[in-house]
């Protein structure tokens, strides 16, 4: 007896989508459209069409696997429904226990990178050596050359950073100017405090 659910659709885009599914399951990092196209031997436009098909198929609430655009590519992740079960089996050492100092350092590197440790220290007012070393160990930041010949080593965020924070790219970070910190307002506040103290 034929089982309708097992019927394989022979549409060419469907066939390409199945190939991409396979490649994405094997990959342990996000793959760009160009990489997927090269692997499948197809042009980028057809790959994007197939990806759109897969995004509809692998989405929250419909599948235990979610296809997402992250870190400049496409990758599968577990659906939120499966998160607790994953948490019982696996650990997330990269993101676990990031201290406020580490997050501040990470923010400086994400927004201003490539940036050197002295530059980070200048912004935070505290030496950044141990925070940077910890982030490098976690794989969230990496060396990005030196500031000129013999200059300080500079750091930038890695694709893993974007993946951990669920960012398609660094341009998804909120605009730094929208995060407050208006110098004129701070100056006015300092002056008002000084006046109150003087009174």
């Amino acid at each position: 007896m034929q089982q309708p659910n097992l019927r394989v659709v022979e549409n060419p885009v469907d066939r390409l989508a199945r190939v991409l599914e396979g490649v994405l399951v094997v990959a342990s990092r996000p793959l760009s459209v160009a990489e997927l196209a090269a692997a499948a031997g197809e042009d980028g436009e057809r790959v994007e069409t197939a990806l759109a098909l897969l995004v509809g198929r692998y989405r929250e609430g419909r599948s235990g696997i979610v296809l997402e655009s992250v870190a400049g590519g496409w990758a599968f992740r577990a659906a939120r429904e499966a998160a607790k079960a994953c948490g019982r089996l696996f650990d997330r050492p990269v993101a676990r226990g990031l201290s406020p100092a580490a997050l501040e350092t990470l923010a400086v590197v994400a927004y201003l990178g490539p940036v050197s440790r002295p530059e980070i220290a200048r912004l935070r007012g505290v030496a950044a050596d141990s925070a940077v070393a910890g982030l490098v160990e976690r794989g969230l930041v990496a060396e990005a050359g030196r500031a000129g010949e013999g200059g300080a080593v500079r750091y930038e965020t890695t694709p893993l950073f974007e993946r951990v924070f669920g960012l398609a790219g660094l341009d998804e970070l909120p605009d730094l100017d929208d995060l407050g910190g208006d110098a004129a307002e701070i100056r006015a506040r300092l002056e008002s405090i000084a006046e109150r103290r003087g009174a």
Binding site: P100, L103, E104, L106, A107, V108, A110, Y111, L123, R124, G125, L173, P174, L176, D177, L179, G180, G181, D182, A183, I186
Partner: peptide, 10 residues
């Protein structure tokens, strides 16, 4: 102000 922005970003 610069530090406040960094703190907000963190």
């Amino acid at each position: 102000a610069a530090y406040r922005r960094v703190k907000a970003a963190a």
